[in-house]
Design a protein around this nucleic acid. Structure first.
Lengths: 338, 338
DNA sequence: TGAACGTCATGAAACGTTTCAAGCGCGTTC
DNA sequence: GAACGCGCTTGAAACGTTTCATGACGTTCA
């Protein structure tokens, strides 16, 4: 009862299994007559293709793995949604794994996805996965790095220009009159952090006025880390506090905001301006609406999936790095200094 | 080069394929000697099990589908993370699909997952999927409803007691001195909304003082819907505004908060108190830290997956409804009335 | 008229695994 | 010493699909 196979469909339609398969996969190689008969049979029997058998025989998989570094960050959910949109257009499902900056889990997921023989892998990596990814590629599973530029050009990547973003953020702070700027973020094993900081340095050094840039390191990139950094700033005497903060991402910025204005000890943006990165949807809804560097997150996901599929279809393509430009979104948290 | 099969392992270890399979699946039915030989061969050749073939033959799948209604709501991220934790413990991967309250997409994903022959389905439904789910069950694919009590007892579900949550929220508002309370939420096709409202009514009617409860309906449950509702409240004369709002979830509450305090027109909690539902991590980081009804989201995900696996193992289990109690989390947005 | 060709349909082989009946070797029991 | 049981291994069958060599049939062209 339960399982209708292609054989049943063939019998019901009065054709061979080969023909049914062709109707499913290359309808043009089949007479219109057969197509209608087969489709009627499929309808009548409620046939659903068995993806496992298809994968086994054809070696082509209808799943793609997505490994995300930081399952707390809404930014990645937008990326996934972009990838999903594109995937469902191709009849492809997404296997999802959040690793929470845990290298061991990252490996578990890669193993799992390898067994599943995914068509390819989208990965926002934390650990050093290059070796692992190369091994997967030997097995025919390609990968596209998301939100991280692939240094050695071994893999394609889709990301945003973090250096430019950092530069633009600090230029904006300088343009609104700030001179003592703190970069809050970390850990610096993460390219996102180092690149954004590098951009910030460029802007600080290139400014026409003298600008101080200090670095306040955080252990991770969550709300709690931002709040902790805020506490550290609050412990200083007012004169020694920065007059603006560039946070490595919006979560950190929100944490900062919360601790700074929470006890109404510091006015934002009057005493300290804050700008974040990512422009997650909560940035606009924050206590003080948060300025941020917007990433085209859905487009990143969509593009990454598209690149992945293209490379899976033609493994000889050389890796390419797609880099989008971030966009400055100004809100109240960086209102100009009076 | 690329693909090492069980046959290659068998040859390399000097045993039969059957033995290799047994080492993989029931090591106790095999002599220790064979086990070590086979494991050595697996190691040497870098063998990885082909999940497609396994699924085809054994009919048992190592994937579970998770269909989420509202990909914007961080609450579901936590649910997924709970499910993931449990899944990876069983070597199971999660196929993820966010439908964004789009009935058509919901169907697309169900189709996709049916082709993939997932072991089962976790679903936070939007549309009326009961018929579809029953058909899937006939095919051997069970489902567990997440975050929604299954009315007719046809499927197991894991959710939170929304009626109790609504009651507790309004009781809290009344206890802190509010008397003119608005429920902001919708659409009322969604059980979450109707149940929370029902609970609110119980509290309002059971209060020892007269309490007004009005309903401000929203089209959906996102930040924008909350902000729109806030605008409507702002258009009223001050005397006609509620003195407290119970929002159907935190996103709506954040939107409300943003529009109410955004232009500093209304003081929260002094003029209007706000309480939300879910206790997403941004609730604590809001402009005015938000009181909320906390759901044990990770536990919900974990439990749902566990129930799903149990039912997949033994299809004769009767459906069971697991209901957790929400917990009141008090923050500044409902500071007592003076 | 016959060769050549194009269009379709056919059915068996193959993908890599699990399962299972059968068999082997060896020790134990009557 | 035959019969039996036990622990383990074996190899072929089966899962449902795609692929591909083969061939049937009809049309075109020299």
């Amino acid at each position: 009862m339960a399982n209708v196979s292609i054989r049943d469909v063939a019998r019901h339609a009065g054709v061979s299994v080969g023909t049914v398969s062709n109707v499913l996969n290359r309808p043009d190689a089949v007479s219109p007559d057969s197509v209608t008969k087969v489709q009627a049979a499929i309808e009548a029997l409620g046939y659903v293709r068995n993806e496992a058998a298809r994968k086994l025989r054809a070696g082509v998989s209808a799943t793609v793995g997505f490994v995300v570094l930081d399952g707390q960050n809404p930014f990645y959910y937008d990326v996934i949604r972009g990838a999903e949109d594109e995937a469902s257009r191709h009849g492809i499902a997404i296997l999802y794994g959040a690793t929470d900056e845990d290298v061991k889990r990252e490996r578990v997921y890669l193993d799992l996805f390898e067994e599943q023989q995914v068509r390819g892998l989208l990965i926002a990596p934390y650990g050093d996965v290059n070796r692992r990814l190369e091994r997967l590629r030997e097995r025919g599973i390609g990968a596209v790095l998301v939100d991280r530029f692939s240094g050695e050009n071994k893999f394609s990547s889709v990301s945003v220009d973090n250096v430019a973003g950092g530069r633009m953020a600090v230029e904006h702070l300088v343009a609104t009159g700030r001179r003592r700027i703190a970069f809050v973020g970390g850990p610096f094993e993460m390219r996102q952090a180092t690149d954004r900081l590098a951009g910030a340095r460029v802007a600080a050094e290139g400014a026409e006025v003298p600008v101080d840039l200090e670095v306040i390191a955080t252990a991770a990139m969550g709300v709690a880390d931002g709040a902790a950094a805020g506490e550290r700033i609050l412990r200083r005497r007012a004169a020694e506090r920065p007059d603006a903060v560039f946070a490595v991402n919006d979560l950190v910025a929100l944490g900062l905001l919360q601790s700074l204005v929470g006890d109404r000890r510091v006015m934002v943006p009057e005493e300290i301006a804050i700008i974040g990165f990512d422009d997650i949807s909560f940035a606009a809804a924050a206590a003080v609406p948060l300025s941020s560097m917007r990433q085209p997150s859905k487009v990143i996901g969509m593009t990454a999936l598209r690149v992945l599929l293209e490379e899976a279809a033609d493994p000889d393509l050389i890796p390419r790095q797609t880099v989008f430009q971030p966009e400055l979104v100004v809100r109240r948290s960086t209102d100009p200094h009076r």
